[in-house]
Design a protein around this nucleic acid. Structure first.
Lengths: 195, 195
DNA sequence: TGCCGGTTTTGACTATTGTCAATTTTGCCA
DNA sequence: TGGCAAAATTGACAATAGTCAAAACCGGCA
């Protein structure tokens, strides 16, 4: 095993621990069945129409999920270091993705294929809880966002975002933040300038 | 077992089959650990602040999830006959619910407690997939709705809703549909009249 | 049938947000 | 460091949606 590799896996195992502390045998299988990548900004992990076959963990970097409708780009979510990322709906049912996933920064990540993840679930049944937890967390996050879209004005949504995700304003362009909030770039600019 | 009861359970077992065909032993445990209810229109299954301790299956009836913010009522989802219903975020992590669940019609339902469901998962580990599938389906549904909120105008959201859920216009008041779409009742009225 | 309460529609006006076009600012790198 | 392309801001105007108040509609029931 290459020098430095255990360090990277230490990071993902700490994140797993929030859901389930893995045994050494489970960790060994995860290491054996996963891959490490160093990808450049701009690279796509998934494009709409493709089946998303891998679950990613971001050691470092930033990533955006987005969907294109009527020639327009709608940002759906953003994730940064130490997060699990995949096109959830596509990955869990292995059907074509409606969303694209694009790196916003050069990133270091670990990925595992759907097949290999199922193999781990099968070999170590108690790890099933991880799959469930990941979907549950994604669901809770999305629920909060949907209610914000429904009940808050554009200004309140922006302020809510700044509080909840301070990273955004450092690492995401205003164009993408605007599309995430469901408003035009110009409106966001006016909100920021205090009208 | 009372006459008619097996018929009701036949309905829920058909719905389970879309996720996992249950064995006779699994069905027997589900019957033993669940309850049948006949509830009146207006009854609440969960109120905000309470932990939602049960997963419901609607044999017949209609139900609405909603959240109250700044004294306003925001409809989050609707479900009708033959659907599984719970306050997902609250149920899966057994924390206080942010949403209320209210019956829109007199309804017949089957419910199982969180503890009893975990007991079934534990006795029959392969049934774990049901829990995951339920969250996954809820997630996919919510994802579609969020993108609609973000990318469609009010008029398009209303037309999309009519296509996707024809039941809505028969069984849900315009007040609730408007709050679901994130628009005022008057705006919905004008959209319907063709401006 | 006729009244009642709740639901839905309509009107007039205001507020918010979008669009298009023109600048200005920023970040990168040759 | 200078120059370029992308990102962000600004202005003028149009389109969309909200608010408040009043009227019309509708369903249940005495």
């Amino acid at each position: 095993m290459a020098k430095g590799v255990p360090d990277l896996y230490d990071i993902v195992f700490i994140s797993f621990e929030k859901m389930l502390a893995l045994t050494d045998a489970e960790k060994a299988d995860y290491i054996r069945l996963s891959e490490i990548h160093h990808y450049k900004k701009g690279r796509h992990l998934v494009k709409a129409g493709q089946v998303c076959s891998r679950m990613y963990f971001f050691i470092s970097g930033a990533v955006r999920g987005y969907s294109v409708r009527s020639h327009k780009d709608y940002s759906l979510w953003f994730e940064f270091d130490r997060c699990f990322v995949t096109s959830m709906a596509s990955f869990v049912s292995q059907t074509p993705s409606h969303e694209n996933i694009e790196l916003l920064e050069d990133s270091t990540l670990i990925s595992i294929s759907h097949n290999n993840l199922l193999a781990i679930y099968s070999t170590h049944p108690r790890t099933n809880v991880i799959g469930r937890r990941l979907v549950e967390m994604a669901f809770i996050e999305l629920e909060e966002r949907t209610l914000a879209m429904q009940s808050l004005t554009a200004t309140d949504r922006y302020e809510h975002l700044l509080e909840r995700y301070p990273q955004f304003s450092q690492r995401v362009s205003l164009k993408h933040i605007a599309s995430f909030l469901g408003i035009s770039q110009e409106t966001l600019s006016r909100i920021r300038s205090g009208k």
